[in-house]
Design a protein around this nucleic acid. Structure first.
Length: 325
DNA sequence: AAAGCGGGGAG
DNA sequence: CTCCCAGCTTT
């Protein structure tokens, strides 16, 4: 009954999203699912369009340099997603595996993404649980505590044979548009009649406790050449914003680069992340020379758009007075 | 089981 | 300001 009502509702409430365009090409489903990890639909849409224009197929993605992929990911966050997407494209030899179990073997495929691609693109009868599904099921069945784990079992019992894809998508759609985290629209809910949590939806699921957010601080140097190019350095693989380009921190050695004149203080840029607060002081100056390190390069403002930079790095560049970031 | 990893939109 | 989003990986 639950599944039937949900599917009927989905038939008329389904939003028109770029990755829902028929036919459902597995590659496109995959790209959208990865971008949507911890990221809202509205944010993803423009990134998704750009990405598909540049990498229309699995083959084109596999053939591209990683830096091109990171450039298109710039600003989207969780950059390991882009690395794993690229790695998996290279690993899967022309076509994605067709089952959740096989997809799990590829980098970047966790329980959710494997089930999403398997059910939505290949029609496999597997349940899935994301934040939306866990919230909906926690309310409907009054699941106590953190409902994410238990939801996998519950979702499996509700799964209508042969319609897993539509069911999974409907459950997520309900969570995204009706059974929202705050102020759910129970009056518009197709399953409010069978919802055990209707009287107190905000009690479910139990909110997670948020970790403290330590402050991370450093000073970055914006050296500009006479032609306007700015000196960037590639961040180490084990650091925050791993492998992305950024203004070099003052601790970074700059072999081959000369600095002219005094530095000017440009103030501070800040970025709040889930697990820490970052504050970067920006100093600006003039420089020249040929870097003797592969992790250093001069970049013209015109070319900043084609580089893998974090949002914080772009903010830093703007603060240093460099347009085009 | 918990921590690390981006960024931003909504209330 | 807080919450949390179509989560995954590592410890």
């Amino acid at each position: 009954m639950f599944s039937t009502k949900l599917l009927r509702w989905f038939g008329q409430a389904k939003r028109d999203l770029p990755w829902r365009k028929e036919p459902r090409v597995p590659y496109r489903v995959w790209v959208s699912e990865v971008m949507l990890q911890q990221t809202r639909v509205d944010v993803v849409i423009p990134y998704y369009r750009r990405f598909l224009r540049r990498f229309p197929s699995l083959k084109s993605l596999a053939a591209a340099p990683l830096d091109d992929v990171l450039a298109l990911w710039s600003g989207l966050g969780y950059y390991t997603r882009a690395r794993n997407l690229w790695k998996a494209a290279r690993a899967c030899q022309g076509a994605l595996p067709r089952t959740a179990a096989a997809l799990r073997e590829l980098p970047g495929f966790g329980p959710y993404t494997a089930a999403a691609v398997a059910s939505l693109a290949f029609g496999e009868d597997v349940p899935l649980v994301d934040g939306n599904v866990a919230r909906v099921l926690a309310r409907v069945f009054r699941l106590e505590g953190d409902a994410r784990e238990e939801s996998w079992t519950v979702a499996a019992t509700l799964l209508p044979k042969g319609r897993a894809g539509a069911f999974n998508e409907a459950l997520m759609e309900l969570g995204a548009t009706v059974c929202t985290p705050r102020a759910p629209r129970c009056g518009e809910c197709p399953v409010s009649r069978e919802c055990q949590g209707r009287s107190a939806p905000e009690r479910y699921p139990q909110p997670r406790k948020r970790p403290e957010r330590p402050l991370l601080e450093w000073t970055a140097l914006a050296l500009q050449r006479r032609d306007g190019a700015v000196l960037l350095s590639r961040r180490p693989e084990d650091a925050l914003f791993a492998g992305l380009w950024d203004l070099p921190a003052t601790e970074i050695k700059l072999p081959g680069v000369r600095q002219h004149g005094e530095l000017a203080d440009c103030g501070v840029v800040e970025q709040t992340l889930t697990h820490r607060e970052v504050r970067v002081s920006i100093q600006r100056g003039r420089g020249s020379g040929t870097p003797r390190s592969k992790t250093l390069r001069w970049v013209l403002p015109l070319h900043l758009g084609a580089l893998g930079l974090s949002s914080l790095a772009r903010k830093s560049l703007r603060r240093a007075g460099i347009a085009g970031a």
